[in-house]
């Protein structure tokens, strides 16, 4: 995830706040927000992760002319099924940790550009999931003036076994 632009827009912030069940007017009411300490609509602290929408390389959404792994006529696309055991449950990348450091909070009208680098990788033995392989990515989000707005560290994990409820 690097180089693309993430425009911070009012309707997107409002939809995101709905999705996390947060009706705070600071996220949707320009009059209220204008008179608040923040002086403008700001974004919830985890809103940055909505930049998946703008990342051309994101594999988290279906794309035109590309096979998508979700179910249609079959449980997954035939291209994804592979051989006979193609439908056997296999562990997928899960989100293990997420860290944000806010230099300031996002406001409507910001246009952010991320720069990502790989961090550490490590292994651990899990009680329910077998061997766990962790990998870290660090992303700096800069605004339209080149100022650092948020530094983000995300840790993904691949488990040996699928974790049951």
């Amino acid at each position: 995830m690097s180089g693309h632009k993430f425009p911070v827009e009012a309707s997107h912030i409002k939809m995101f706040a709905h999705a996390i069940g947060d009706g705070n007017p600071i996220y949707h009411d320009a009059d209220y927000a204008g008179q608040s300490e923040q002086r403008a609509i700001i974004a919830p602290p985890t809103f940055l992760k909505a930049n998946h929408h703008f990342d051309p390389e994101s594999n988290l959404r279906p794309k035109p002319d590309q096979a998508w792994r979700g179910s249609g006529k079959y449980a997954t696309t035939q291209a994804q099924q592979g051989g006979e055991d193609g439908l056997a449950p296999k562990p997928e990348l899960l989100h293990a940790e997420q860290h944000f450091e806010y230099h300031r909070h996002l406001r409507v009208g910001d246009v952010l550009t991320p720069t990502t680098r790989e961090g550490k990788t490590w292994e651990k033995q899990g009680k329910r999931s077998g061997k766990l392989i962790f990998s870290e990515t660090i992303t700096e989000h800069r605004d339209q003036n080149g100022q650092l707005v948020v530094t983000e560290t995300s840790v993904g994990v691949i488990t040996e076994h699928v974790i049951e409820q």
């Binding site: 300490e37 700001i42 997420q98 944000f100 450091e101 806010y102």
Partner: peptide
Amino acid sequence: GDGRLTKYGVRFTRQ
């Protein structure tokens, strides 16, 4: 309060 967080980090320990 709104806009007051300077850091927020978590581990997801269970689904």
